[in-house]
């Protein structure tokens, strides 16, 4: 469904991604793992059109996304749940979800989508009128996931959904993502919790200083000697 071919990108004269090739098939869950500063967030920002690429190609279901303005990517079916959640803190949970359904196709189905997200995350229904900034960390993550789901994306990009949460909440967030998968969504997830991520996804890519160092199925990577030693301390 999503295909990246030799994509390079950067910030000014600093190049952050070097000829990345990556594939996500429909219905798949794929992880991008790697150390801090490897370029994981940059990669997601490229895929959701927030950062223009220097060279290479990006296609979604065979259609090129090059040259599309950033705000059009969600209409193409790419929803991006950004690093640090980035909720609108002084807006209610429901208004945050409303923003997730801003595009015309989602607006038409707002009421039913809202019900659906509330059914998926019942906690959000209880908190619907609360300001998002006053939610607990776990609830905020639910709200961020719900907001991204309101557009019913073909591809859901998640940037470290478990970051900054207590261990028990990390488990909970992985559970939420599992539920989203079970709904049939295609997911590309960036994660630092490599072991847990590999339990969740079908395949993964290891990024190091802007390059794909390793890639394979979750099973293969779980047994990969280099990955186990360098990143899992095993």
């Amino acid at each position: 469904m999503l295909t990246l071919r030799d994509v390079s990108a950067g910030y000014g004269s600093f190049q952050a991604l070097f000829e990345i090739s990556l594939e996500v098939s429909a219905g798949e869950a794929v992880a991008v793992i790697g150390p801090n500063g490897a370029g994981k967030t940059t990669l997601l920002r490229v895929i959701s059109g927030q950062l223009p690429i220097l060279s290479g190609s990006i296609t979604l279901q065979g259609r090129s996304l090059l040259g599309l303005p950033a705000h059009r990517f969600i209409e193409e079916g790419i929803a991006h749940c950004p690093e640090n959640r980035r909720l609108f803190p002084r807006m209610t949970v429901e208004d945050n979800l409303r923003m997730g359904a801003f595009i015309p196709t989602a607006r038409r189905h707002f009421a039913e989508r809202l019900d659906w997200v509330y059914a998926l995350f019942p906690r959000l229904r209880e908190r619907r009128g609360q300001l998002a900034g006053t939610l607990s960390g776990g609830e905020q993550q639910m709200c961020a996931l719900g907001r991204a789901l309101m557009s019913h994306p073909k591809l859901l990009l998640l940037d470290e959904p478990s970051a900054g949460l207590a261990p028990v909440l990390v488990m909970q967030v992985f559970d939420l993502v599992r539920r989203i998968r079970a709904e049939g969504f295609t997911v590309l997830i960036v994660e630092q919790n490599i072991q847990q991520a590999l339990e969740l996804v079908d395949r993964a890519y290891l990024l190091e200083v802007g390059k794909v160092k390793l890639s394979g199925t979750a099973g293969e990577l779980k047994n990969n000697q280099f990955l186990r030693q360098a990143y899992m301390g095993l």
């Binding site: 059109g49 303005p69 991006h80 980035r86 923003m99 595009i103």
Partner: peptide, 9 residues
Amino acid sequence: IMSLMGVNT
């Protein structure tokens, strides 16, 4: 993050 919501600022 408005562009992620599909909003043209």
